[in-house]
């Protein structure tokens, strides 16, 4: 009996520890001044959320969460940040006005308050958590559930991901086609120097670059 009480206390302490880590990391991911660190904090937060799945005995989701969120989505956002030098410079970032911040705080506070009321006062199930099957059986059961009776939903998810992939590529291609101003040699100091020497006109980069090379000082 005493051992059971100690186990419950330990489990609750684990939950509180994970919850504090997740909430602090989520706050830092939103509020840290340096965007690169913010993305890293988000990755750590996603890894810490896997702790909840461990407590809920969902081992497959632990692996999926770490692989997709920490390994995939965070890495994708970091690559995005690295592609945009301007985004890395925190001194250029425009922060919210005090009014907008107050509005956001008020709205999110209202969401949290209503949710807390819902969580505490709605008659949720008082049942204890059911013990899930063993790991091997759990994975087998999950696969069977997904592919036997609900394969169509898995196919739909695959279709959504394919659509997103094609859409992303299409958007980036569109961006290339819609370039507002072709790159000229003026943007590159070395090429600009060459251009001055050769006296070529402001043609697009490829042509001018080749022209500058050909007409370089001999």
């Amino acid at each position: 009996m005493m051992m059971q009480g100690a186990e419950v206390l330990l489990e609750q302490a684990e939950f509180i520890g994970v919850a504090v880590i997740v909430l602090v990391l989520a706050y830092l991911a939103l509020e840290h001044k340096e965007i690169t660190y913010a993305v890293f904090f988000f990755g750590f937060m996603a890894a810490a959320v896997a702790g909840f799945y461990l407590l809920l005995e969902a081992p497959f989701l632990v692996g999926l969460q770490i692989a997709v969120y920490t390994g995939g989505i965070s890495a994708l956002i970091i690559f995005g940040v690295l592609l945009l030098p301007r985004a890395q410079d925190s001194s250029l970032e425009i922060f919210q006005t005090a009014r907008r911040r107050r509005f956001g705080l008020l709205l999110s506070g209202a969401v949290m308050l209503l949710s807390a009321i819902l969580a505490f006062f709605y008659p949720w199930s008082d049942l204890p958590p059911v013990s899930p099957p063993e790991l091997a059986q759990s994975l087998q059961g999950l696969a069977a559930w997904l592919w036997s009776g609900h394969g169509i939903y898995v196919e739909m998810v695959a279709l959504i991901m394919l659509t997103a992939l094609v859409g992303s590529v299409a958007i980036l291609k569109m961006m290339k086609a819609e370039e507002l101003r072709p790159l000229t040699t003026e943007s590159h100091p070395e090429s600009a120097g060459k251009k001055d020497e050769s006296g070529s006109s402001s043609a697009p980069q490829t042509e001018t670059g080749e022209g500058a090379k050909e007409a370089g000082p001999e």
Partner: peptide
């Protein structure tokens, strides 16, 4: 649920 709703609010 509290943690989940706090994350949603955040």
């Amino acid at each position: 649920l509290i943690v989940a709703f706090m994350l949603i609010g955040l």
